[in-house]
Amino acid sequence: MRGLFRIAALMVAASAASAWAQEVPKGDPANGKKVYLATGCYQCHGRFGQGGLMTGAAPILAQTKMPYAGFKRQLRSPINDMPPYPENLLSEKEAADIYAFLQGLPGRRPVKDIPILNNY
């Protein structure tokens, strides 16, 4: 019985992973970088997705954990103060390219590797 549950759980997980993979179109990170800069994303979120501040916080985007569906929803109909990016300003492909670019950005480094951050 326990084994049956385990198999079922694995099947569900595989299905979810498959759905996740289908939801993320393959993007072109090089073009994503160009679009990210040209459409002004970096003005609030930083050229390397490190985040920033407008009237409120602009979240960190480097290697974002936000699912693509949520990412796209935020582009098209953003919460908080982010400007909207409707499809006439940012195509489906460009959105996917930006997402690919963000996933490919260098993320956090271990704090221990930066000595002056260990002196606090």
């Binding site: 390397f48 997705g49 490190q50 985040g51 993320g107 956090r108 590797d113 951050l117």
Partner: peptide, 8 residues
């Protein structure tokens, strides 16, 4: 501190 390492 970890956030600060981004774009270092």
């Amino acid at each position: 501190k970890s956030d600060c390492t981004l774009a270092w």
